[in-house]
Design a protein around this nucleic acid. Structure first.
Lengths: 233, 233
DNA sequence: CCTTCGATAGGACATACGTCCTATTTTTGC
DNA sequence: GCAAAAATAGGACGTATGTCCTATCGAAGG
């Protein structure tokens, strides 16, 4: 059984939610590759993401998919559709074993007047999601894959050269809005220039300094999160 | 002097805002081409858009701009950045003479506990903005300009063939993430096929039925707005 | 009415990128 | 340890698209 209490304390959820809402939280687990949210389903719950790593993507009529974001705790899914389309727009998939807390929408709506803090938090998170996506979108639209990869590496790499979002070329291609083939070409060039290291479809950054001149605009630093604590008092 | 009262009534703003917030609304006007919001400025106000037409765009380091959206009343600007970056991410420019009502952020924060409805509305609007953008972005990324133009025309054209968003080829190119040149090529082809009419950089749709097979996924119908009234009761 | 100027239309060319396919390497099963 | 299968790397080719530039058109001014 999941230690619900533990997550409530860790993320200060009782500062964010009224007591009755905290009481109606229901936890669930998902293994790697399993869906946390299926695009198109009706929005019955707001989902708090408290453990693991996940990614969100949309699928188009022609079968292609576009990777929208990578997530790490603490985060929320489903807020975007709650008051608009009422159906999940994107699928969210667990990358590693993950734990989520469901908040039923009907309970939320009933308790709305006592939960303005939650809404403030949701506004904040929605705001960052929106501006982040617009930034990423603009880059994908206006810069060649080389610049996009450079920007991505600069933005989501730690000091040891580890990739935070993904180091898988296939996923990266989806995220950067490029074909696998084209991304592979660029990666090859970067490797020849000693910028990164590649083996078996995984990349690792070697030389950060060589990237700056290649990147145009920057993707938003992963983790520009609004913390739930900000509104607890 | 602007009839503030009139807009409060028309859009049921006293159902959305507590009385003291309604009292702190300050109206202003902008002429065609004037900025309503300048990207980069600190967010001191949430702006309600009550009269006119406007467009939002971002500018990149390399000088290129990306058109994000066209707006008609009723709408809000500035909610996205309010709790996150605190600086306007996009510029908003009046297309026609426009009227807005400013709500100072400090007043809003002070009155937050009594204004959960406003936050619910903002969540709804932010949610649509986010899903709309993601849809547009995916299309721009994965389909050729021909499909994008077809989708755009299908989504934002009234029965008489009038363009709702813009009929200016330059603006359209920015919105569709294409170069003017490429868009012109496609427009030419469409005109040759009797799909649309063009003169002096303006387009008008003639034959709606020929478009469907060309469009892949669809841009969201302009005006999938969350109405402020939805939360008034 | 003719000239000048700005805007629009379109040609020419280069290329970033996507699709398709094959060779190589790595993994898996026995 | 070897064969079969899967994954990865990269070649070949076509094209959608961007950049640059010129011709044409319409408006404005004298």
């Amino acid at each position: 059984m999941v230690q619900l209490e533990r997550y409530v304390r860790r993320y200060d959820l009782d500062g964010l939610l009224s007591a009755d809402l905290v009481a109606s939280l229901r936890p669930f687990r998902r293994g790697p590759g399993e869906l946390i949210i299926r695009s198109g389903d009706p929005v019955r719950d707001i989902v708090f993401f408290v453990e693991g790593r996940a990614k969100a993507y949309g699928t188009m009529n022609n079968g292609q998919s576009v990777l929208a974001a990578f997530y790490a705790p603490f985060d929320v899914f489903g807020e975007a559709e709650l008051f608009s389309s009422r159906r999940y727009a994107l699928s969210v998939e667990a990358i590693t074993g993950s734990i989520c807390l469901c908040l039923p929408v009907d309970a939320l709506l009933k308790a709305a007047p006592r939960n303005y803090r939650l809404f403030m938090y949701l506004c904040g998170r929605l705001g960052s999601k929106l501006t982040d996506r617009f930034a990423a979108e603009s880059i994908n639209l206006r810069y060649p894959v080389e610049s996009r990869l450079a920007s991505y590496l600069l933005a989501s790499t730690d000091d040891c050269g580890r990739l935070l979002g993904t180091d898988d070329l296939g996923e990266l291609a989806d995220f950067l809005g490029a074909s696998y083939r084209q991304l592979a070409r660029v990666v090859r060039r970067f490797r020849d220039d000693g910028i990164l290291d590649k083996s078996r479809g995984r990349v690792r950054l070697i030389d950060r300094r060589k990237l700056a001149p290649l990147a145009g605009d920057s993707y938003i630093q992963t983790g520009t999160n609004v913390k739930p604590g900000s509104f607890s008092k």
